[in-house]
Amino acid sequence: MGWPGDAGVRTAARAWQECLERERRMAGNTVEAYGRDLRQFLHHLQGRQGPPGIADLVALKPRDLRAFMAARRAEGVGGRSLMRALAGLRSFARHLERDGHGTVAALGAVRSPKVERRLPRPIPIAAARAMTGADVRAGETREPWILARDAAVLALLYGSGLRISEALGLARRDAPVPGIDAVTVTGKGDKQRMVPVLPVVAEAVAAYLAACPHPLPGEGPLFVGARGGPLSPRIIQYAVAAMRAGLGLPDSATPHALRHSFATHLLGRQGELRAIQELLGHASLSTTQLYTRVDAARLMEAFDAAHPRAGTAPIRPAPGSAERSRSR
């Protein structure tokens, strides 16, 4: 789908995407999604008033944006996608403002749709441990070094709480092998943080290095594909999908779920929330606080399963609550 709008808008849109990739260093799929959302918005405007120019964008009214959001809702687009679309439009508007075209004031007057934050679904401890070892895939017709590689990547996700992009972004010279108890990773926004490395994780990485048949230059990637090139995240996703049936896990058991499990299992063993925030590289504590809700939900499940009166005992109001409700 080409860029709608006049020549000025098309030039600005391409420059904006290049800026997101090179200067902001956004993930490729995020840049692609933002670009798709902007194209859809420009097509929406073009269908109503003809090819929009930059002056038309600066002069937008809140009703123009609300009409676009309503049209997308009618097409079955959910709140999360609409929230991302607004974020992309605001990013493009900031780009226009930086280039001296003026402020798209309408975007500041439109609220993002409310979206219920999904609770992360942790993987059971026994299953998470099994996923980080090569034995669970022993029956597959894969080369042993590939099984060792996948196990090492998953061990970093569960043992150190890394994002898959962070694990695959490690250079060979930074390999966390036995004797190294921490590694520095580059996360979102190009921010670096140091995370601890458990001995069992370091051993898994060492086992992969010993088995890997490809040369691994110090400046090159630590984890490589079957032909020696950089390893794609999709390969690890396929590996986890292959394990799910054997371990009796749902589709929600993904590589990223191992990172969620790292946080939830730490919290369940009295891990301190601020420390977990630092380990995960969350910019906001509110993101990490999702895991307190996970832990509370698990606690209530245990209560319902174990308490003799669970499910049968009436819930009694606190003393005085009835009187307070009548007086309101």
Rank of each mutant, 00 (worst) to 15 (best):
M1K: 06
P4V: 00
G5D: 04
G8L: 03
T11P: 08
T11E: 15
A12K: 06
A13T: 02
A15V: 07
W16P: 04
W16K: 02
Q17T: 13
Q17F: 11
R22A: 11
E23I: 03
E23M: 02
M26N: 05
M26L: 13
G28S: 13
G28A: 12
G28C: 09
R48N: 06
Q49L: 06
G50R: 02
D56V: 10
D56L: 15
V58N: 14
V58M: 12
L60V: 07
L60D: 08
K61F: 10
P62R: 11
D64N: 10
A70K: 13
A70C: 08
A70H: 11
E75V: 03
S81P: 02
L82T: 01
L82P: 01
M83I: 05
R84M: 01
R90A: 00
A93P: 00
H101M: 07
H101K: 08
S112F: 03
P113R: 02
V115H: 09
V115E: 12
V115K: 08
E116W: 14
R117A: 07
I123D: 12
A126E: 13
A128C: 00
R129M: 09
A134V: 07
R137M: 12
A138M: 15
G139T: 15
E140M: 10
R142V: 10
L147R: 04
R149A: 03
A152C: 03
A152E: 04
A155Y: 03
A155L: 03
A155K: 03
L156P: 02
L157Q: 01
Y158P: 08
L162A: 03
A167M: 02
G169M: 04
L170W: 01
L170P: 02
V177W: 06
P178N: 06
I180L: 15
K188Q: 07
G189D: 09
D190V: 14
Q192V: 10
Q192G: 07
V197F: 03
L198G: 02
L198C: 01
P199Y: 01
V200T: 14
V201I: 00
V205D: 01
V205N: 00
A207F: 09
A210N: 14
C212Q: 05
P213N: 08
H214R: 04
P215Y: 06
L216M: 09
G218C: 11
G220Q: 07
G220I: 10
F223I: 06
V224E: 01
G225T: 05
R227Y: 05
G229V: 02
P230H: 06
P230V: 05
L231V: 02
S232P: 01
R234P: 02
I235C: 13
I235G: 08
A239L: 09
V240Q: 12
R244I: 14
A245Y: 08
A245W: 04
G246W: 10
G246D: 09
G248Y: 10
L249E: 13
S252C: 11
A257T: 14
A263W: 04
L267W: 05
A275W: 14
I276N: 09
L279S: 11
L279N: 12
A283L: 12
L290Y: 12
R293E: 10
D295G: 13
R298P: 06
E301S: 13
F303H: 15
A310Y: 08
A310Q: 09
T312S: 15
A313I: 10
A313V: 11
A313S: 11
I315H: 14
I315P: 14
R316N: 15
P317A: 14
A318S: 15
P319L: 08
S321G: 15
S321L: 15
S321C: 14
E323W: 10
